[in-house]
Design a protein around this nucleic acid. Structure first.
Lengths: 195, 195
DNA sequence: TTCGTCATGTAAGAAGTTACATGATTTC
DNA sequence: GAAATCATGTAACTTCTTACATGACGAA
């Protein structure tokens, strides 16, 4: 039972990884995810507790009861087997698919069917969205830099990837807007409802 | 029945959009998706046929039977109501979430737990993946540019976003590699298994 | 005549989400 | 003592994927 069929679903590795970084409870795992990886991975709270149970059953984490009134509360620690499993997953060389599902780009793709002003508004919405992300991530950067100075440089790496690709999206939006909607420099303005 | 509850699931808009661009059958829709939008949206073949049925039921497309032996084959056209629905969706101003689920970035986030050489290999794998995407998209670009010259500029826009996005990832990977693994300029080489 | 590609569909199940139920603890 | 927040869990549902079944048609 201890060495069950290897290779867990990805959310289980997220849970395992968060515990290895110090998260103790399901609640803390969810918080950790929101704080650090939500820009490229999300997990719903309802997924966490079944994952914890499975990881414990497979001996990758150990939980202990913390008595609080008559409601159970459990805190977890990663085991040596868990750390080994996590490292093995990180070292795996299977091809890593890149999955992006973006309604924004999807709408932009079809935007030739829209009126010019609707297309312009959409482009602006997509640009703003990425600009906001750039701002949010840039604000977090000093924290990540400090963690990097303490030896863990990879969270800063993923943060910088996020900043870079959203900045790239902003730039493409801006240059397309400049070429196709030269009149308005800041967002849609007139009712130039051609087409 | 004709004006049922508006706002369809996103995959239905993909199907509707592809039909509006000239795809006639379920098969052609799937092909069109693979050719043009798979970099930011995918749809499985099994999703397409139920979507077609629903769209027809709601009067957004019309299908007609093309007799082929004793197996039915149907081809579809978008209706005026369908075009209106698609435009309304494109014009909708609800906030557009950006959803990225990337195992590559996820692994990189946790990569401080790996050995230095495993981390380096992972970084290289992520860099290659994006470089390949850049190359693939760049190869398609002339086609998209021609379509843009014929009046539909937005497919080229999304293509350029994809190129810029992945180029940004490549650049961040390269600069991180240069800083942290200065010895190896082309991928992991030695067995410097520290940590 | 067999293989590859065009083509349509279903069935089963995995994966993930939302909403809800419950209770503890802290803060005002 | 009310509200906010910490905390755990379940149930119902939707969504999506994989795998399979079926068949037409053209080329080798």
């Amino acid at each position: 039972m201890t060495d069950a069929n290897r290779s867990l679903p990805v959310p289980a590795y997220v849970v395992l990884g968060m515990i290895s970084l110090g998260a103790q409870s399901g609640y803390e795992i969810k918080q950790g995810v929101e704080r650090s990886i939500r820009f490229f991975w999300t997990i719903s709270q309802a997924q966490i507790y079944p994952s914890l149970q499975r990881l414990e059953r497979e001996g990758l984490i150990t939980g202990r009861e913390v008595p609080t009134g008559r409601r159970r509360r459990r805190i977890f620690e990663i085991t040596d087997a868990g750390r080994a499993e996590l490292r093995a997953w990180l070292a795996g060389t299977e091809p890593i698919p890149f999955e992006l599902r973006d309604v924004g780009m999807l709408k932009l793709f079809f935007a030739d069917l829209s009126s010019s002003s609707d297309a312009q508004e959409l482009l602006e919405a997509v640009r703003c969205r990425s600009q906001e992300r750039v701002d949010t991530l840039t604000a977090i950067r000093p924290d990540a830099a400090e963690i990097a100075a303490q030896g863990a440089g990879h969270p800063l790496l993923t943060l910088e990837m996020g900043i870079a690709f959203h900045q790239a999206m902003v730039d493409v939006c801006a240059s397309f807007a400049a070429e196709h909607f030269p009149a308005a420099s800041t967002g849609p303005s007139g009712k130039d409802n051609e087409r």
